[in-house]
């Protein structure tokens, strides 16, 4: 009986593992394929002969990325945006989440604020009004146009707020009896206890800023000021029609040796790098950080 069961169990375990293995592979294939393309020879990539391993491996595309001034300008702007935007998000998210985690008895206006947040999350005036507003403030073409409108990440506030609400109430009460003010409670008690959650929402806000492309497209006046994702979004073929008319066949051949397919793949990989670096460190907090953000009454 036991023997039969354990064999059966092993078969089940085996099939579960096999299924998970397939799922995991499916997650990786498009990414590995892109890596393979980025290291491949242009003709092979264009003919669609590259699958998961580079063909005639070359780093030519990466050399070209390194040589692309605008790519790096855009990269730096994105870094600046992430640092600035992430910091603002960090401070505001914690403050708002902490205050809103109080119930209406402690913080009478709480529900009003809360609905206001939800309202702003759902309503927007559309592209034209948004553009006109930023223009009125004189923020067009500045980094602040990318950062300030997203200063409050409502979703993150709600997430962190729900985590705060799940912390034992006694904590707060005991501290207050000792005469500690709310700022003290927030900084000395709540923040240290919520590091996984804070790490999680911080990652979210970093990723948000890193991945945004649309605001750059509308609000930046010169492509020199585009953040990275906007730059990649607007990538037009590097060897343009006009450029071709003026190149000699030799120059053309050299230019064509690095096709856009491989070149773009290399750009994609390079732009993923920052996320790939940060992500593993914070990933382990997820399970603890995102309990289903809600409180049972």
């Amino acid at each position: 009986m036991v023997g039969y069961n354990s064999v059966r169990n092993r078969i089940i375990d085996g099939s579960i593992l096999a299924a998970l293995f397939l799922i995991t592979i499916a997650c990786l294939i498009p990414l590995l394929h892109t890596v393979a393309v980025s290291f491949s020879d242009k003709t092979a990539a264009d003919a669609g002969r590259v699958f998961l391993t580079p063909i005639k491996a070359t780093t030519a595309s990466y050399a070209k990325v390194l040589d692309d001034g605008q790519f790096f300008k855009a990269f730096l702007i994105s870094v600046e945006r992430v640092l600035l935007g992430g910091l603002i998000n960090f401070v505001l998210t914690i403050m708002m989440a902490f205050a809103l985690s109080k119930d209406a008895k402690q913080f009478p206006m709480r529900n009003v604020y809360m609905w206001f947040l939800v309202f702003t999350m759902l309503f927007n005036g559309g592209v034209i009004p948004w553009f006109m507003t930023i223009k009125t403030y004189g923020l067009l073409d500045s980094i602040w146009a990318l950062v300030l409108p997203h200063a409050v990440q409502v979703f993150n506030v709600i997430l962190l707020m729900n985590f705060f609400r799940n912390l034992p109430k006694e904590l707060n009460e005991a501290a207050e009896i000792d005469g500690a003010g709310p700022w003290y409670v927030m900084i000395r008690l709540y923040i240290p206890l919520s590091l996984p959650s804070i790490a999680t929402v911080t990652l979210f806000s970093i990723v948000f800023h890193w991945n945004s492309f649309f605001d750059g497209l509308v609000l930046m006046s010169k492509q020199d000021h585009y953040p990275l994702q906007t730059y990649i979004q607007t990538l037009v073929t590097q060897i343009s029609a006009q450029a071709m008319t003026s190149m000699s066949p030799d120059e053309l051949a050299a230019a064509m040796a690095v096709s856009n397919r491989t070149f773009n793949a290399a750009k994609i990989i390079v732009s993923m790098i920052p996320i790939l670096i940060i992500y593993p460190f914070i990933q382990r907090f997820f399970i603890h950080g995102i309990t289903l953000g809600s409180v049972k009454e």
Binding site: I128, F131, M132, K135, D141, L217, V218, S221, K222, Q223, D224, T234, V236
Partner: peptide, 20 residues
């Protein structure tokens, strides 16, 4: 005052300038 590369982005910048 502003720059845009490509037909559509340029058109959009002009349209935004008109709208505002």
């Amino acid at each position: 005052t502003w720059e845009a590369k490509g037909e559509d982005p340029f058109k959009q910048k002009v349209n935004l300038a008109i709208a505002s």
